[in-house]
Amino acid sequence: MHATIQKPIEEIVNYIKPGEKVFVVGCNNCAWKCHSGGEEETTAMAERLNRRGVEVVGSTTPGQRGMSLCKLDHTRKVLREDYAEQIKKADSFLVLGCGQGVHTVIDATDGAMVHPGCDTIFGGETVSDTDINEYCSLCGECVIEFTGGLCPMTLCAKSLLNGPCGGAENGKCEVDSERDCGWILIYERLKQLGRLDLLEGYREPKNHAKWSRPRTLKVSPHEATFCSQAGKRTVSNQD
């Protein structure tokens, strides 16, 4: 999921020009889990903007809980069919969701003015109702087979691939004494699994071309093609 956190209301209000009519769109999946743009927060945002003198012409979180705003065909259908009247009046859309959701609203409205209501902060695991943690950096070249499934790109502050720097103290990272050293986590896990052998041997530098942006993925039921500056990679999911 894409973790998001709402921008301060003053910042959002500053985006909106005097007299600008705004339609608020939330996301009923990730932003709902983050309490940054679910049904409640979206309705509340409309009211908060109203109280600050912003004219809100409508609001919605398209679909049932679990439905992502970034599913373009669904979002487009909801906005055009269920909110056709309000949208006609809207000068702009405030999106309570991640950056993908913001772009989905651009696509769904054929290029309307949009305002981001959230900062998109990371891709994370929903560990519980209250905790969302980052375990993957979306780098395009997964190395975690050799690290017990724990990502050094993400869990090590320096994204080191061949082991820890010398900076850890009492198992904590030099950057923050509250934060675990990612490499010690990897070591302890592999030790527990009896697979410390995986730590031996040289790990090549990352191919950052696979991390170059923007990237695209073309999918079909049988194969997928990943495009980055590292080139096109097509993989079949069948024998």
């Binding site: 502050a157 320096k158 994204s159 080191l160 691939l161 061949n162 082991g163 720097c165 010398g166 900076g167 030099e174 950057v175 923050d176 040289y202 790990r203 090549e204 530098p205 990352k206 950052h208």
Partner: peptide
């Protein structure tokens, strides 16, 4: 490897760490 940017006087700098010290030696 180098101390993290967070420890220094330009904490908002982008830490590079394109390579690690083992890779740099090689």
């Amino acid at each position: 490897t180098g101390d993290h940017t967070n420890l220094g006087d330009h904490k908002e700098a982008k830490p590079v760490f394109d390579l690690d010290s083992v890779q740099l030696v090689r």
